[in-house]
Write a protein that binds this DNA or RNA. Structure first.
Lengths: 383, 383
DNA sequence: CGACATTGGTAAACTGTTTTAACAACGGCT
DNA sequence: AGCCGTTGTTAAAACAGTTTACCAATGTCG
């Protein structure tokens, strides 16, 4: 139950009472770094002040900050010492305003209610954050709510100089607004998907390879009636999985059937429902390939609570390898997607783009299968 | 107008033909918004340009942007029309540099490898993001790696004007650097914890209430030998749980025992190990209270794979109510923490703080128990 | 010894906004 | 007619950096 004061004062909070004049302390000559006993907020010191105290020009201080080779060793030391003494930190708003870069990149997430609570996104984000930090970039996160896009806020991100570039997670071809970035030459990289037209830069996991690995596993275990719980047919990478699934069946001499395919909407409820539908349509099904771990979990949940043992009666394979599901019961055999590494790569490529590299980005990272308990040999084949 | 020609000093004439000087296109009078067929990046237009085209001063345009009442209706319309026509978007670096606020808040996460992939943080983040969006603030995320803190980067966040304030998730009293913020009067709010000295602003869930609810449940089901898998004893809220657990036992006439307490480190492995230790120390234990869902899951995992049925032999209660664990098997009875709402509240309070409100922030949100399958009546009491 | 480079540093222009003090034009009042 | 008070607008001064064109003092060479 939403408690007190939560939804009070929606949009506006009272403006501040005391308006601190900009005049402030222009005349102060001696600075107190941490003279007094307890730490205090350092009085705001700017580059001009540092220059004055060090007896050099503003330009010189700037050049020291940026390690320009035009500054002599002695001057550098003198100025640096003053910088440290005064506890001076350059204002990055001024730096970015004057310079070319903001040193910030945005991460756009889809408008799902629990986008941040999602292990899939989290893993990618983790990689992005680590890389961004190493490259000296900050991270801005944004959810692409319909309203947000309608008002063109996604472009404002760049045009108003919030960020230098954008990483987009969890989108697909239906989200046509993403083309806006490319149309305007704003650096943007699609993460773990691609657009059919291939005009947008992207990095994604090798879903074909992953599907292949999963199908090989199931086929080798003797399964022939294999159902598939897919999702998001508007997503090229999701289609990769379905196509590979079908192709592998054909290669194995099995004729794929429409009735083996059900959409599970990427949710656990969807996975459960899909399992129900599949097993009802064809009770002979002995294995399920699921488009992500959540659906796989839902499917297992349905199966075990409706008289089908996993893996004894039905084997289940997922996709993602999200954390702490190794601890599900039974633990899940799944295709491991290198999501962390994908995040690292995406960030890396984006920064290259920002710095002026022009090549089209189109990278694909390999997957591998993690064998756990939810898969087993086809019943009839066991001795 | 002292525009160009300022720096066309006496002699230099053709010098800057090839140099892409900052002068750029001062003379362009007609703007192409989206005349041509395909969309193009709008040529960068600034407030001066708009003012010129609209035939007013820069100050007037600024006041139109900020809806100042001092601008007449007719002027407002005239200028607004030009703004739209030229596709002008104010540069927020300049705005923030000039003004008092950056309109950005930071979210600091602990340096865990998978901090972003964590459902607990994700849920809070979700609330923060929604609220921040509505309040017109952007979100910067940062991981407080040891290196980061050692270099004082957490203070730079504020001092270099990256953000107006900071929200800290997942920290405890051991993280003393958080006091730096308060010492310097930088707006900061501790989320879902508090410091013992109560000097720092905080919002957190009512862990005492939660523990009470969980214990009531277990006691009512007839359990008397109740083990506890705790974690992070340096965290006041985590201590709340242990203390309440102990107090409730005493109230129920049961003398708490040291051997019923094991640290599970907030991880699933830790939970599994803790369950093993507890059941070994005292096989009579018929219920486990776990400090979070992850540990509860680990415990269940251990129990079910070692001959203990859940809930038939041992009941398990968790803390958090993280998503899609309703689909664990058996599904988990747990204390629901209003994490989303907590995020909303934290963001709200932080922005109030930023805007000048000075009251100490200390809010506590109520929890409730979610009954699912992992708890059952004490064996010996069942008919 | 004078012409010419090189080195190290500086003044001033530039980034794009907000805000303040001043002011012109106008109406109402004595 | 002279004075005062609004109203609406503006010029200019902040905000805090980077960059560029230029300059003075050396060093090198013929």
């Amino acid at each position: 139950m939403p408690t007190r004061s939560l939804n009070s004062s929606p949009e506006s909070v009272p403006a501040d009472v005391f308006a601190p004049s900009r005049e402030a302390s222009k005349e102060i000559t001696v600075r107190f770094s941490n003279a007094g006993g307890e730490e205090k907020a350092p009085e705001k010191v700017n580059i001009r002040e540092v220059a004055r105290q060090a007896g050099v020009s503003v330009a010189t201080v700037s050049m020291v900050l940026n390690a320009s080779p035009r500054i002599s060793r002695s001057t550098h030391i003198k100025v640096q010492r003053m910088i440290d003494k005064m506890g001076y930190r350059p204002n990055r708003l001024a730096q970015s305003l004057s310079g070319r870069y903001t040193q910030v990149v945005a991460v756009m997430l889809p408008p799902l209610r629990h986008a941040f609570a999602d292990a899939y996104f989290g893993e990618i984000l983790s990689g992005i954050a680590d890389r961004a930090g190493k490259l000296g970039h900050k991270l801005l996160i944004e959810q692409a709510k319909p309203q947000f896009v309608k008002e063109g806020k996604h472009l404002e991100l760049y045009e108003r100089r919030f960020v230098d570039g954008v990483l987009c997670l969890g989108f697909n071809e239906k989200h046509s607004f993403l083309s806006d970035f490319a149309a305007r030459r704003y650096p943007m990289i699609l993460v773990d998907n691609r657009f059919g037209d291939n005009l947008l830069d992207y990095v994604h996991c090798d879903y074909r390879l992953g599907a292949q690995q999963a199908m090989n596993c199931l086929l080798q275990l003797g399964h022939r009636n294999i159902g598939m719980v897919y999702a998001a047919p508007e997503s090229p990478t999701a289609r990769d999985v379905v196509e590979t699934y079908t192709a592998r069946l054909v290669e194995a001499g099995i004729s794929p059937s429409e009735k083996w395919l059900v959409d599970g909407c990427f949710t656990d409820e969807g996975g459960a429902e899909a399992a129900r539908v599949l097993l009802t349509r064809d009770p002979e099904i002995s294995a399920l390939l699921c488009g992500n771990d959540k659906m796989a979990l839902g499917a297992i949940r349905y199966l075990t609570t409706h008289g089908h043992r996993v893996p004894d009666d039905v084997s289940v394979v997922g996709f993602d390898d999200i954390q702490h599901l190794a601890y599900a019961n039974p633990s899940l055999t799944t295709v491991h997607l290198p999501l962390y590494e994908l995040g690292v790569l995406a960030c890396e490529k984006l920064v290259e783009r920002i710095r002026g590299k022009v090549e089209h980005v189109a990278e694909v990272l390999p997957t591998h299968l993690v064998l756990r308990e939810s898969t087993g040999m086809m019943r009839t084949l066991r001795s």
